[in-house]
Computed example of a mutant assay.
Amino acid sequence: MSVSLYYRVRRTEPLTGAESAATERITAAHHASFPYGDEEALYFWPVGDDPREVLAGSTRMPSDPGRCLPVIAHVLDSLTELRRALPGTDWHVHLDDLDVPWDEAEGYALPGMRDPELRTEPGGP
C-alpha cells in the first residue's frame, strides 16, 4: 500500500508569466536538491477541467520508512515556498486523508518534521 502527498492550487485568475516562472524556478531547485534520486519528487500534472485550478500534483512516499520523513519535509518545504510565491491562491495539501496544516510563520509542516534527529535517515550521517 502506498501513501501519497497531494496538492492542489486554485484561483479565479490563471498564473501570470512571472508566477509561472517562479513556479518553474522553485520546482527546478526542488528537483536539484531532492535527497533521493530514486524516489518520486515534487510532481505537477496538467491542470484538469476546473478553470480555477492553476496547479495540481502529488508525490508518492517512499516505501522505506527511513526515507519518508526527509521526503515529506523536502516536499512540504517546496510547497511552502511555492505558496508564498503565489499570492491570492487557495491551497489544499493532504497526505492521503490527513490535511496538512498551513502556518503563516512555519509554512506546511507535520508534528516533529523539523526535528533533526527524525529527519535523518537511520544509519545516515
Rank of each mutant, 00 (worst) to 15 (best):
V93G: 08
Y6G: 12
A41V: 07
W102E: 01
V47Y: 05
A109I: 10
L98F: 03
R84H: 13
L42P: 02
L79G: 11
V93W: 07
Y108I: 02
E13Q: 15
E121R: 13
D103G: 03
R60G: 08
P14D: 13
W102L: 01
G48T: 14
P70K: 15
P125A: 08
T59K: 07
R10I: 05
L69W: 08
M61P: 06
P87C: 01
P70V: 14
A73N: 04
L86Y: 00
M1V: 06
Y36I: 13
T120G: 10
L42E: 04
V100P: 00
T59R: 10
H94I: 05
P70F: 15
V54E: 00
L69D: 03
A41Y: 02
F44A: 14
P51F: 05
A29F: 02
A22D: 11
L118S: 08
A32G: 11
T80N: 04
E13L: 15
P14N: 11
E121D: 01
T120R: 15
P65D: 14
R11F: 02
D64W: 07
G107K: 03
R52F: 11
M1Q: 02
A105S: 05
S4W: 01
S4T: 06
I72D: 10
T16A: 06
A41I: 09
R67A: 03
S58N: 15
L79E: 10
T27I: 00
I26W: 01
A29N: 06
Y7F: 15
V54C: 09
S2I: 13
E40D: 14
T89V: 11
R10Y: 02
P35A: 02
D38A: 05
E39M: 09
G123V: 01
Y36G: 00
P35S: 04
D96R: 10
E53R: 15
T120C: 09
R84T: 11
S2P: 15
E13W: 15
S58D: 13
Y7Q: 14
E53N: 10
R67Y: 04
